[in-house]
């Protein structure tokens, strides 16, 4: 499988794949699929990878907002 083709603040805690170079954090689809399989036991078809990654990026953004509020209060 090729690379997912997206960049972003990858977070291990969200089950996303940490790479050695965070600035170039573009994991391959096979790496994402392997992580999903290990974490929740779903064999992720390649077609699903971009959508799942987009979903994880959205959740990461929401977690960032939530934690900023927690720090302020």
């Amino acid at each position: 499988m090729g690379c997912v083709g997206r960049t972003g603040p990858w977070r291990v805690e969200l089950g996303m794949v940490e790479t050695a170079d965070r600035d170039q954090a573009v994991p391959g689809a096979d790496a994402v699929a392997a992580h999903v399989k290990q974490l929740i036991g779903i064999h992720l078809p390649e077609a699903c990878v971009p959508g799942v990654v987009a979903g994880l990026e959205g959740l990461a953004a929401h977690l960032t907002v939530l934690r900023a509020a927690e720090r302020e209060r």
Binding site: L14, V36, I40, L44, P50, G51, V52, A54, L56, G58
Partner: peptide
Amino acid sequence: DRLIAGAML
């Protein structure tokens, strides 16, 4: 895809 992402939270 959104449900799978949620299951990984």
